[in-house]
């Protein structure tokens, strides 16, 4: 196991560097100079071009791309992610501010999604082809095919505008800092997020459970005298959990990237909406930092998923 991990880590690091190089290059190749974009063309003067050039030089944007990259990665390893071009604030601060709301939203949403998928997916599998299965399948298909933001808007319309039960947007009521208020604001977006993320997973859980439920060893377990429920829990569920766990492990990077549309609809100040804004402004340092963090998370979660798989399923051997 140790040797395997080392090898995997080595290749992970290599892939990570490659990713950062590619993303760095692509971002810098995008049209539009972020500094020039900050100046309305109606306010251009003869001095403006010089000013832009001076600012670019100051930020090192006129150096060769490989040098810029090496400078950036050198700083990044010391934890210095640079300053935003748009407002001069440290990138780590900007990301730090946005990451907590996103993590809050996404982690709760994912937990809900997993719970929904496991419970209803199993239920549908156990009652395959009966009414319960059809109803659950219908709703999960509906959820998959309806855009999340649409469900979000309809939910807001129903619960917030018509029924006046829940707040319509934002993380908190202005000026209020209580937990109760924060929780109230979480209910709708987390629910919508949980629903939309659960749909695909639910289908997968159902499939995995069905294939395990029809497995022969289930019959053997019954033949030993286990109750049907006991069979599901002790044998089927645990086996089905193996592929499910790995799918869940792949969902982890979403914790960071957030759900851009849901964040927009609910005015949630998270990473998703930040990245969209910054991308429109070509704010390189922020974008590359975000890409780097996402890359790390994806690579790590892949590694974890692979290792997890081998730990949980004795049939799989590490190579």
């Amino acid at each position: 196991m140790g040797a395997y991990l080392l090898r995997r880590l080595a290749s992970t690091v290599l892939v990570f560097f490659l990713i950062t190089i590619v993303v760095f290059t692509l971002i810098h190749l995008a049209p539009g100079d972020p500094i020039a974009m900050q100046i309305p063309p109606d306010q251009y003067t003869s001095a403006t071009q010089d000013f832009i050039a001076a600012k670019r030089h100051e930020l090192g944007l006129d150096r060769a791309l490989p040098i810029q990259y090496l400078t950036w990665i050198g700083h990044a390893f010391t934890g210095d992610l640079g300053l935003s071009i748009v407002n001069g604030r440290p990138v780590s601060e900007i990301i730090g501010e946005r990451i907590v709301p996103t993590l809050e939203l996404m982690s709760l949403g994912m937990i809900l999604a997993i719970v929904i998928a496991l419970v209803f997916g199993t239920w549908a599998a156990v009652r395959k082809n009966r009414i319960v299965d059809y109803v659950i399948t219908f709703f999960s298909m509906l959820t998959i095919s309806t855009p999340g933001f649409f469900i979000g808007i309809m939910a807001i319309y129903l619960f917030s505008v018509k029924l006046k039960l829940l707040p319509s947007a934002g993380m908190s009521t202005t000026g209020v800092h209580t937990t109760a208020d924060a929780l109230k604001h979480l209910i709708l977006p987390v629910t919508i997020l949980g629903l939309t993320m659960s749909a695909g997973l639910l289908r997968f859980v159902r499939g995995a459970m069905i294939s395990e439920l029809t497995a022969d060893y289930q019959r053997t377990a019954l033949a030993k005298g286990l109750t049907r429920g006991g069979v599901v829990v002790k044998h089927v569920f645990r086996n089905a959990l193996i592929p499910i766990l790995t799918v869940i492990a792949y969902m982890i990077p979403q914790l960071l990237s957030g759900a851009v549309l849901i964040e927009s609809v609910f005015a949630w100040p998270g990473m998703g909406s930040m990245v969209v804004d910054e991308a429109a402004k070509n704010d390189f340092p922020v974008l590359i930092a975000f890409a780097m963090l996402t890359a790390i998370l994806v690579l790590l979660s892949n590694l974890v998923a692979d290792v997890l798989y081998t730990l949980v399923d004795p049939r799989v051997k590490l190579r």
């Binding site: 808007i153 505008v161 707040p167 947007a169 202005t174 000026g175 005015a267």
Partner: peptide, 21 residues
């Protein structure tokens, strides 16, 4: 006493106008 300038897209703003937020 207090003024809050809330950052909202105009859809959400219209919503919140309805709910009184």
């Amino acid at each position: 006493k207090d003024v809050f300038l809330k950052i909202l897209t105009s859809d959400v703003a219209t919503q919140q106008l309805q709910t009184g937020e």
